[in-house]
């Protein structure tokens, strides 16, 4: 039997739909519009913005004309490809959300086919945009009916500014190699004049009701090469793995010949709904 794919009978499907409907409502009330992309595309064009990880983890096949095709392994780069190609038909800043199945090779922490839900805020490189997207993510989690969760927030500069040794230890999460653990906690841990301090000041003003859901983690670092600014993860108490993540990727669109700043997040829906099964 084929493993790691979605076979869902009506009862379960209707429960999933209730959650999905509420999330869609949340996106709409925040003036985000839905976008969709092809399920598969030519590999050469789509993979322009990919690092080693997506190149290795994506599922390819040979198309009718003998060229390599790939099933989309996530939605950020297909949207970047599409928006770049048809940018003249869109206004910026552009607020988009998506809700699509994506595909990756089988892995211990995920299925081969899984539903990804996320948002993209394109053409706005301000801290306000960062605050807006994190706050939207919190609203989405709340609208899904999840109570005990946190968004852990870091910034790529917290690892990029360090020595090669420290950076590698942070990325591989071998904290045994660090002199002390990276700071983690509320805004009191943020260095003066740091980007995250500015972020926190604006967040407090614009989304005070969501402040409880934020925890800062100065040790966050990712191997994914496309992040250029703030990065964050969604953590649910009682769900043992990270259910969503996001950040700023201001250089990604350049790979698709349309140079605009971008920030977004993606939630793994199958991971999120384990909250309700627990």
């Amino acid at each position: 039997m084929l493993q790691g794919v979605n076979e869902i009978l009506p009862d379960e499907l209707s429960k999933r739909h209730d959650v999905i409907e509420r999330i869609i409502e949340c996106f709409k009330s925040n003036e985000y519009s839905r976008i969709t992309t092809p399920t598969f595309e030519p590999y050469e064009e789509l993979s322009k913005g990919w690092g080693k990880y997506l190149k290795e983890e994506s599922i390819k096949f040979i198309g009718d004309d003998g060229s390599i095709m790939v099933l989309r392994p996530e939605m950020t780069t297909p949207i970047a490809r599409l928006v770049s190609a048809r940018n003249q038909e869109l206004r910026f800043p552009q607020k988009l959300f998506y809700l699509e199945n994506v595909f990756r090779k089988k892995h211990i922490l995920r299925k081969q086919e899984f539903l990804q839900i996320g948002a993209e805020l394109l053409g706005d490189d301000s801290i306000n945009a960062d605050v807006q997207i994190v706050s939207l993510l919190i609203d989405v989690m709340k609208s899904a009916g999840i109570k005990e969760f946190k968004i852990e927030i870091g910034h790529i500069e917290n690892s990029d500014n360090k020595s090669q040794e420290v950076k590698e230890a942070l990325v591989s999460r071998e904290y045994n190699k660090l002199d002390k653990l990276p700071a983690l906690g509320d805004s009191s841990i943020l260095p003066k004049d740091s980007y995250l301090k500015q972020f926190d000041d604006i967040f407090k003003k614009q989304a005070p009701e969501n402040l409880n859901y934020v925890v800062y983690n100065l040790g966050l670092a990712e191997e994914v090469t496309y992040y250029t600014g703030i990065i964050f993860n969604v953590l649910i108490d009682g769900v043992g793995y990270i259910v969503g993540s996001g950040g700023r990727y201001d250089k990604l669109y350049k790979d698709y010949s349309f140079d605009i700043p971008a920030i977004g997040f993606a939630i793994g829906f199958e991971k999120l709904i384990t909250y309700f099964k627990g």
Binding site: K150, L184, G185, V215, D237, Y241, I242
Partner: peptide
């Protein structure tokens, strides 16, 4: 240490 436990139970 599990990543979620690390951050939520630091």
């Amino acid at each position: 240490v599990n990543r979620v436990f690390y951050s939520l139970r630091n």
